[in-house]
Design a binder for these strands. Sequence first.
DNA 1: CGATGTGTTGACCGGGTTCAAACAATGTGG
DNA 2: CCACATTGTTTGAACCCGGTCAACACATCG
Lengths: 254, 254
Amino acid sequence: MLTTATAARAPQMPAAAQGWRDNQQASRRIADALHTLQDKLPIQRRVVHAGDKIYQAGDAFGCLHVVHSGIFKIINSAADGREQVVGFHFKGDWLGFDGIAAGQYGCDAVAMDTGEVWSFRYQALFEACAQHPELLSLLHEAMSREISRDRESLLSLCTLSADARVADFLRYWAESLAQRGLRTDQITLRLTRAEIGNYLGMKLETVSRAMSRLARDKVIQFSERGRRDVQIPDVAALSAFVQRSLTPAGETLQ
Amino acid sequence: MLTTATAARAPQMPAAAQGWRDNQQASRRIADALHTLQDKLPIQRRVVHAGDKIYQAGDAFGCLHVVHSGIFKIINSAADGREQVVGFHFKGDWLGFDGIAAGQYGCDAVAMDTGEVWSFRYQALFEACAQHPELLSLLHEAMSREISRDRESLLSLCTLSADARVADFLRYWAESLAQRGLRTDQITLRLTRAEIGNYLGMKLETVSRAMSRLARDKVIQFSERGRRDVQIPDVAALSAFVQRSLTPAGETLQ
DNA sequence: CGATGTGTTGACCGGGTTCAAACAATGTGG
DNA sequence: CCACATTGTTTGAACCCGGTCAACACATCG
């Protein structure tokens, strides 16, 4: 149906209001998608807790999964033991696409807190797609979004300094929450510094230092109870920080 | 149909022969896929030359493309001017998946040499998929493979040293050629050191130094006519180099 | 309480960047 | 044909960002 996720912009609208509308739309899209799925497919629901594995690299592929609640991390582990967090998945995101071509999953999918995943046989989805084009649309858009997201990761990995990468990560995280209708001014990271560092291609000490600097610059703020809780008064300030750190000198590039 | 790209292994087979069989299979799969596509869909063929853009970030999405010959690079450009090469596409690879969800392409796709792309309306493919499940299978496997490949990139970006990344890149490039039935002992890189560096998240000088070291270690060899031509007598030696550089000290980890 | 896991901060070091110079390959125009 | 410009590659030297190692703070939990 070629439905677009973000409709044509309204340039005369203030940026903040625009962002809010986008998030509303995203939230709506996700809710609709989950609704469509449970209408059209036999679904296996499963409640999971922190540390539970939805699937592991090497497991025979047969099912795709959709996050109904909770947050999940995807870990790509090489044969030689290297482990790399390659992505995080929130409500409405799909899990397991990498298994389709290979016939087996290529990564581990691990729950980071209590949540619920919906699973269904890929075969069943495949057949249902022929009957219900909207289902096919859903699937393709989800895969497309995943590809785009991975490329964003590559971009920030290759072009940003460590501090900027951390800022960009927090922006991404807050954005992801906002798109699910959750508050972002006060978020609880369910990751250790080591996990963040792994994802961002840096060491935990560097993450810690970067966050301290962000706090010193008032871009973020630590909650009084624990350094895992981060207050982000203004998400746009994180983007601004990233931009600022792109131009070391005050380049007046107009 | 849940067809798997790489069938069950035959463990008693020598690794080299196994690799050769895998490449044969891949080559066959690609040829079959192209065949299926032109059978089932109205295709727009287009010959392109080095530098030609198949599409640009921001262009309205409407078509998907498949590489029939030549090599293409995908460039993700941020609003602030950062440009990042996020992937290379060879014969049989698809272009444009990132446009499905957003309604517009998110990257540029640029030809690196003379080649041919097959394009078709996403809408037409979408409708044909309902009739021809094998078409849908093709599409999903291609998207799945793309996601897996991006994650491989993330893994090597985050876990490998500069030298190892260059070695791994050459291995990937040779492997990609081998899977298309092309020779790998003597390849001509159609990229500058700067482009390789951009893709690998390092500067061109670092690429140059890394390649000099690889040549000094006899893992690769420069052709007499120009440093763009690289001879790879043994692709496995590149993998071995990567593994070697993982363990700085001689860790006898059994 | 000690034990364990996590986060912060400092001091030092090294791999990769930056800056610079020289060289190679290719093309252009006289 | 050579002089010259252009673009890409190589290599050296100095510098710096982020890694490494270490000490300490601060939770939670048995």
